[in-house]
């Protein structure tokens, strides 16, 4: 019973869906205000979601209907299940086993794969270009993201998220060694969430809606929801690994601090998409391999040095 509660309600689907919609609202509102615009009212993401649920699902004649219908749910399931291993407001996650950091990272890779397969099987030319782009982009940001997240794990000597956050609660000053890793992971997360400057797979002015060109109605609603949830999960992951502050207090304060940390990450993501133009796919790949990966290596090297000298 309690397992069912945690999967469906907290911290599972319902909590994440609501938080995801709120995060989307905050993202859109901040984006608008930073552009000196008004922005949407608070219920806009929810209203969009409900509206899409009520619309007709159109499956293209040429598309593979099973894959086409399955992929949105697949993406949604993958992101929701990854939250279970991430410590939210206390050091321990709901479930935890040794090496769960790697599992969470792979679970977060699945939505991108779902976008690719969904776009590919919808057979539209725009969707195919978009899906190939999202896969190309994945190979570029995934490596720096993994390396960025592994450096704090290396310092904490554990591949378990709960143990990593416990380590930084015990030694809070050590998390300052990971500032560079935080920046790298944040940039890579932009790529994972397909937000500007890395919104190349869904570049509106080039390939309409990219992967999602043929999606409509409920299926599109689920895709959107999974992106929103992915944003919250990604931000939670970054918060758990890089910002492990205020985890030892009581539940209410801890929870509030957790929300604030996630919103801080969301704010940084929004800021990045406000002040940069979209990159081209070749520029994006080059940027990731030429700048992000070497920086991540520097971070890893620094961590190894710190480990050798200090610990």
């Amino acid at each position: 019973m309690s397992a069912l509660f945690s999967i469906l309600i907290y911290p599972g689907f319902l909590f994440l869906a609501l938080f995801g919609l709120i995060a989307e609202f905050i993202d859109r509102k901040l984006y608008a205000r930073m552009q000196n615009r008004q922005g949407p009212p608070w219920f806009q993401p929810l209203a969009d979601f409900i509206k899409l649920l009520g619309k007709e699902d159109i499956v293209p004649d040429e598309a593979n209907p099973r894959m086409f219908r399955l992929m949105p749910l697949f993406a949604l399931t993958a992101v929701v299940s990854s939250i279970i291993y991430i410590p939210l407001w206390k050091t321990g996650a709901l479930y935890s086993f040794s090496g769960d950091l790697v599992v969470v990272l792979y679970l977060l890779t699945l939505p991108t794969l779902a976008f690719f397969i969904g776009g590919w099987y919808s057979t539209s030319l725009y969707a195919r270009i978009g899906s190939v782009r999202s896969l190309t982009q994945m190979f570029a940001y995934e490596v720096p993201l993994f390396m960025g997240l592994f450096s704090p794990a290396l310092l904490a000597d554990s591949w378990t998220l709960s143990e990593i956050s416990q380590f930084y609660v015990d030694h809070p000053m050590y998390s300052f060694f990971n500032v560079l890793g935080f920046a790298i992971s944040l940039i890579a997360l932009l790529g994972k969430l397909e937000k500007a400057p890395f919104d190349i797979p869904e570049a509106e002015t080039e390939i309409v809606a990219g992967t999602f060109t043929e999606y409509s109605g409920r299926l599109f609603a689920f895709f959107r929801l999974s992106i929103d949830i992915e944003m919250v999960v990604g931000a939670s992951l970054l918060a758990a690994v890089f910002l492990p502050f205020g985890l030892s207090g009581d539940a209410v304060i801890g929870f509030l601090i957790y929300i604030l940390k996630v919103l801080l990450v969301v704010f940084l993501l929004t800021l990045a998409r406000t002040i940069f133009a979209r990159m081209r796919i070749d520029q994006m790949v080059r940027f990731c391999w030429k700048y992000l990966v070497p920086l991540a290596l520097v971070q890893l090297l620094a961590i190894l040095l710190v480990k050798g000298v200090v610990l």
Binding site: R33, N36, R37, L271, T274, I275, F276
Partner: peptide
């Protein structure tokens, strides 16, 4: 330099929107 519009963008956060609620 990257992020040249950062200042303007952050200032706008604390300004009233230019939009008129038609």
């Amino acid at each position: 330099k990257p992020g040249r519009m950062l200042n303007l963008v952050l200032q706008s956060l604390f300004k009233r929107p230019a939009t008129l609620n038609y």
